[in-house]
Each structure stands twice: as C-alpha cells, then as structure tokens.
Computed example of a mutant assay.
Amino acid sequence: MPTVLVTGASGYIAKHIVLRLLRAGYHVRGSVRDAAKAQALRDALATHLPDGQADTHLSTVTLDLLHDDGWTEAATGTDVVLHTASPFPMVQPKDPQELIAPAVEGARRAIRAARDAGVTRVILTSSVAAVSGCDLPPGRTTYDERDWSDPAYPGITPYSVSKTLAEKAAWDMVASDAPGIGLTTINPGFVLGAPLDGHCGTSLAVIERLLAARDPMLPYFGFTTVDVGDIAEMHLRALQRDETIGQRLIGVADFLWFTEMAEHLARAFPDRKIVTRRAPNVVVRFLGLFDPAIRSIVPALGVRTDVDASRARDMLDMTFRDPRDSLSDTAQWLMDQGRV
C-alpha cells in the first residue's frame, strides 16, 4: 500500500486521519514538532488498532513549520503528502504573524517538499475560515468553494487570515512552481467529536466552557459544524479519487447557534447545570473588554453563516453526521476524562 506523509500528525483532527489511513492499510509517516510527542501519538492510535499495527505501519519524523530542516527527506519515498499542520488558538494573538507565518510558511514547505521529493499528490487541510470571511455577491445567501475570505474584511480574525493566506499560497505554488502536483484542499467547519487521547483541540475547549457553565449568559454567536470522523474520512476519500484534484471541498453538516448547542447539552445531560440564556449583544461587547476569547467573536454576533457542502457530498459520497450527536460525544468524553 502507498505511504502517506501526514504533517502535524499529533493534532486532534490529524490523529483521526492517521487512524483512518492505517485502518485502510496505508503506511503513514507522521510528522511531529517535538520528538517527545511521537510515542504519545503511537499510544493514542494503538488502542484503536490491531496489535502491533501502530508500530509496523506508522513511523514518525520531526518537522517545524518555520524551518526547512528535514522536509524533503520526510516526503522522500512517500506517495502522498497530507498537510494538516497549522496553529489553531483559543484566543487570537496580539500579533497576527504568530498564526500567519507558520501557516503560510508551513503550506509552502509542504508543497516544496512534495515537489522536490517527486510526490505528485498533496491534500491540504484548510478551513471554512478561508471561505466565509467576505461579502457574498448580490442574490447569494450561501457560501461555497468559489468564495475566498478577504484578509481586509471587517472583523476577520488572525486565524481566518492565516488559513486564507496559507491555502492561497498552496494553490499559487502549484500553479507556478510545482505544476506537476495534484492539490486538493479540505475546508472543515467547526470540528466536534471525541478525540483519540487527552491531547485535544481548541474546539473542545469551547464545549468544555459550556459544560462548566463558565458564562452567566451566552453570546448570539454560531458555527458551521462537522464531525471529526467525517473530516478524517474526507481526507481519505479525497486522496483515493483523482477527480478531487484541483478542488476545494467544504466539510460542514449544519450551522448551530451557541445557545442551540447549550440547549442540546442541557437535554442530553439534565444533571448538569448548563447555561442556555442568551446575552444581549451589548453585554457581550462589554465582557469582551476583559475576556480575549469573547472579544474575538464580537464581530460575528448575530451573523448566521450558511455554507454549502454539496460538492463534498457528491464528489466524495459523503453523508455528514448530525453534529448534535458529535456534540454529545464531545461532552461525554470531557466528562469521562474529568475535565468538567
């Protein structure tokens, strides 16, 4: 079976991708930023695989998004480069370059490494953040793969800028410097679902905040959501289907307001005191003066963002899981782990 280089393999989504690849019989070379994470990655996967497969089919390398060392060597001998590595913070940094530089430079290094190693297939994990940060043309109410976020759009976050510029950098490189590479991007919404180990993503911290009833009221704010397993499956199917070359593929199941998420959790876990009351926007703006996590969502208050995932459903034969079930799984995992 082919060998796939998965960058950022210890990440929340990436571990699910690696698991799908290993279960499908692929050999995986996973990159980690810190060599100490390699054993934790193997341990997380081993509990979900037949005995020994995490040792026989998985190897690891150490790569840094901001340094060239080892990238071409890591891609050499592989058949596909699957680039997932990119920072995703809970709180937006004061200096946007903390996110933009590693995202953009990492995307360029992944494409360059594939080209120099003779790899002709790259799958890049982008985001709907690279799609929906713009005004829609007149007459349209739903975003799709034709749309690109505008880094100068009012209220756009550094994270959205980083994902936009990184994805554009990858497409630009393929068009100019690496025309032999077949590129596909996967653009997930807000990802939910139980992680494979205790090293979980930023999206789970949002659910942890709900379960802990950390806020007396909830902002009028929402997400396009999707299950982590569905996003992992999209990566697997994309690399298996040549018709996805040159395509952006959005992965979302539904839009959920924050209050909808809270109300679902309150019904699913009636023993927990979960806040469901919505805060007036003026109150949220005031709280944002003191809480950076709240401050980052103020520009999106009351804004519903509908995103069309029909291309992924048609091209990849995807049936997306109800994100409410993913939300329940996330909450149950957090409680089982004693995190709330």
Rank of each mutant, 00 (worst) to 15 (best):
G106L: 01
R321A: 06
V284E: 02
F290H: 11
E263G: 04
G25A: 02
Q332S: 13
P89M: 08
R214Q: 15
T157N: 08
R313F: 07
Y26N: 05
R285F: 08
L327G: 00
A85D: 13
K168P: 12
I231K: 03
A113K: 02
A175C: 05
Q92D: 13
R285E: 11
R267H: 05
M261P: 09
T142W: 07
V80N: 05
D34C: 07
A238V: 03
D227E: 12
E167M: 10
L192P: 09
H199Q: 13
G70I: 11
P2Q: 09
Y26S: 05
E73H: 15
F258W: 13
L183D: 02
F258V: 11
A293V: 15
P102R: 03
V303I: 08
T259D: 10
L316G: 03
E233G: 06
L41E: 05
W71T: 11
G222R: 00
S59K: 15
R115I: 01
V32F: 04
S31P: 12
V226Q: 13
T62E: 15
K94A: 15
A36I: 12
T319Y: 06
T60L: 12
F190L: 09
E145D: 11
G25T: 01
T76G: 07
L211A: 02
F88C: 07
E105K: 11
R304K: 15
V174T: 08
C200Q: 12
H48T: 09
W257I: 00
V206S: 15
I100S: 04
L99S: 01
V283Q: 13
K15A: 08
M173A: 14
L316Y: 02
W257T: 03
P137C: 08
